[in-house]
Design a binder for these strands. Structure first.
Lengths: 143, 143
DNA sequence: TAGAGATAATTAGCCAGCTAAGCAAGTCAG
DNA sequence: CTGACTTGCTTAGCTGGCTAATTATCTCTA
């Protein structure tokens, strides 16, 4: 019996697309002095000012170590500031600086909109809706 | 006018799916003593024994530096061996060892098949074909 | 044929991601 | 109130990913 070749699976297509996406995003992020991944962190903080590192860890499905170091570097570069939580001295809360807020705006307007435009170029409205529905199902399957 | 929120774009869904995929894959790869990304490299070499580093760089859309170091580590761990090309002394050709070949087999059988099964769980045949068609179009748009 | 340019690989140095191990603060049962 | 446990974060050390700069080889032209 013939197996489906790896190269012809949905999973493989998704991994190729992810890589292409990251490459596109890198170019756009570099102009903002950001590295890949940092944009998601900033967006998450923007959605919830004063979020704790632990909450960020959960929201982003990333290890606590990674969050600690990304926050450390983003603070050093002036995008956010840390503050130890009064109620629970173990926790650290993070807030965007003005520079951080502007970065999030730029990311939304330039990066995501550009990326989306390229991604679904020459798709009809119906196809876009359909694709979104199917991908949401995929995401549910995996989480 | 209302903009589409970032969280509701195809691009964002794809980035979330990519992360979920990577997390799933990591668990399966760890059992083979491999790290994320190495499986793609080994597969590529399996498809073309004696491929040069430069060709791998192109095939995988990854920088030459990354290929050099991944090959270096995989050689150290006994998955492949390097050999300087006779015809062009600049080039380096890589070949899978027996261990490397077995790893590729395991990856194909365990990792990709498992991943695919989970990814398109509870999709009808028609939906799978449709999703694949749409994703191939997305990939073309991005490359 | 000699030098300029192109090409293949490497080194140095950075960041994102991970696990394992550790520390400090909070919590809770005895 | 004290010791055990949990929780939040950090440090150490690894890998994948990148750019910039270097080295070595090849190629091609003047």
């Amino acid at each position: 019996m013939n197996k489906t070749p790896v190269m012809d699976t949905v999973s493989y297509l998704l991994s190729r697309i992810a890589k292409a996406h990251r490459n596109k995003a890198n170019a756009l992020l570099a102009s903002l002095d950001l590295h890949a991944g940092q944009e998601l962190l900033l967006q998450q903080i923007c959605k919830q000012e004063g979020v704790t590192l632990n909450e960020l860890t959960c929201d982003m499905c990333v290890s606590a170590v990674t969050v600690t170091r990304m926050v450390e570097r983003l603070e050093k570069n002036g995008f956010l500031k840390k503050e130890r939580c009064m109620a629970d001295q173990r926790s650290v809360r993070v807030y965007l600086t003005e520079k951080g807020k502007q970065a999030v705006e730029s990311i939304t307007e330039k990066m995501w909109e550009e990326l989306e435009k390229e991604t679904v170029a020459n798709f009809s409205i119906e196809e876009r809706i359909l694709l979104k529905r199917l991908l949401m199902q995929v995401l549910r399957n995996l989480t």
